[in-house]
Design a protein around this nucleic acid. Structure first.
Lengths: 248, 248
DNA sequence: CACTGCGATTGACCTGGATCAATACAACCA
DNA sequence: TGGTTGTATTGATCCAGGTCAATCGCAGTG
């Protein structure tokens, strides 16, 4: 339950007044440039849970910023396997991977009823040519994703189930903190199957690990929400069990 | 042993005459823009095996394109775990992840004696503001990496040891084909430990899988080189053993 | 040539987590 | 209130691959 004032702020139509401007595209833009960006943004109707924002293979027409709510991106690879690539929260941008060849390489789906800012790519493209600050911002955001992907590969490759869950929870918590939301109470808006898919575990294992962590007094689980009781213990578990690579 | 003519071509000082221009930064640039880019590029002395091009944490001053030879990127995460993020071949760019905060988030190390093109970031940055075509090219290359990262996460998360090795071999082979090199004979310039680290397996397992594939007549292993005897079988194995995710 | 050292291979064993299957719980509807 | 459906938890079993350890092969070196 965020206070009403905060909700209003987040839903404000203009980037300049958006509480997320320092996380999102607008960061580092001066008010003049920001105004131009603002004019591109279309904050449309609410998107219902399970609704696709864009589909894999589709042409790239817009990128999206999460305004409120949450989303996931899913890719189905050549062999038909489905992989959740990430979860997205207010201020995050969806659609960067489409710039490669002007087609989306994954689908984006709302996890709950959410609002998104739609930004038409062609106009953004033109504006980027005009505003060096915007280009830099864009490159930085993409580069950030790259470096987060690296971290994720490490998690998937090196950590055991407990480490993966712990890392995920800490990550979600950290991202809440960035947004000024209570970091010790993390809502799991996605289903267990989504978590399992994302972390490359079976959902039974997700369940087991969550209860194990609960029994150990590290977290408190209640269906769609996890309270972090002992952050240090969680941190400890997120790296314990990760195995060290052989020396080259 | 590439023919001398090809070596000469690859080592040509100018992008315009470089045989890799269609893979590398210059692609899609007209001759006028290309000339400007060319002036930034410094193709320095050969880099010896095991030498660092740049180190994690270091400020971003240059990005590098592989001219010939090969390299790997390695990241050491907060908890001290070392992860190889990728292998790089002629035409590939190293250093993109540094744009996030002007610092490298991984180290780059030559796998063998290699040549690299050094491009100073500040000058590149200025040129990018000047040339929209270069900006687009840059964004596309970064976006490509993003989408390849997605594929890699899937491999790490979903595939068993045989699938991982098979995928890797096919990937290396495909990249050779792109460069016009014999695709059925793949040199493994990195050590087994590097392969293992990259694929998140133990080196013993890498060894076992390679010999298993050899015994099955799919490949022929000879210390630092793998010959692909039955590409279809390899493809089959690269997806077999990958498990399907639970439905959300 | 013997010696050393590094990397690759192979063998034997054991554990984490996938798999299969049953049960529990909540929301929703008739 | 009971039935139905979707989701989460828990239990029992099994195996891929991690772990430990021995061996081998080759390159360099005194």
């Amino acid at each position: 339950m965020a206070p009403l004032s905060q909700q209003m702020q987040q839903l404000s139509e203009t980037c300049s007044h958006c509480s997320l401007r320092y996380l999102c595209l607008p960061d580092h833009l001066d008010s003049h440039d920001l105004e131009k960006l603002e004019r591109l943004v279309d904050s449309g109707a609410p998107v219902l849970a399970e609704t696709e924002l864009f589909a894999q293979g589709e042409g790239l027409t817009h990128i999206y910023a999460v305004r409120n709510g949450s989303a996931k991106t899913v890719r189905i690879d050549e062999e038909g396997f489905e992989q959740i690539l990430g979860f997205y929260y207010p201020g995050d941008i969806l659609g960067f991977d489409g710039f490669a060849d002007q087609h989306h390489h994954c689908s984006a789906v709302a996890l709950e009823t959410s609002h998104f800012c739609r930004i038409p790519v062609d106009q953004l493209d033109a504006l980027v040519d005009e505003l060096p600050s915007l280009r830099q911002r864009l490159v930085r955001l993409m580069s950030q994703v790259l470096s987060e992907d690296g971290r994720m590969m490490l998690t998937l490759g090196r950590k055991d189930s407990e480490g993966r869950i712990s890392s995920l929870l800490l990550g979600l918590s950290r991202r809440r903190a960035l947004r000024g939301m209570p970091a010790s109470s993390v809502p799991l808006n996605m289903k267990r199957a989504d978590l399992a898919n994302f972390l490359s575990m079976r959902l039974e294992t997700v369940s087991r690990v969550l209860t194990r962590l609960q029994r150990a007094g590290v977290i408190k689980v209640s269906q769609n929400r996890v309270d972090i009781l002992d952050r240090d213990a969680l941190r400890e578990r997120s790296s314990r069990g990760a195995w060290v690579a052989d020396q080259s």
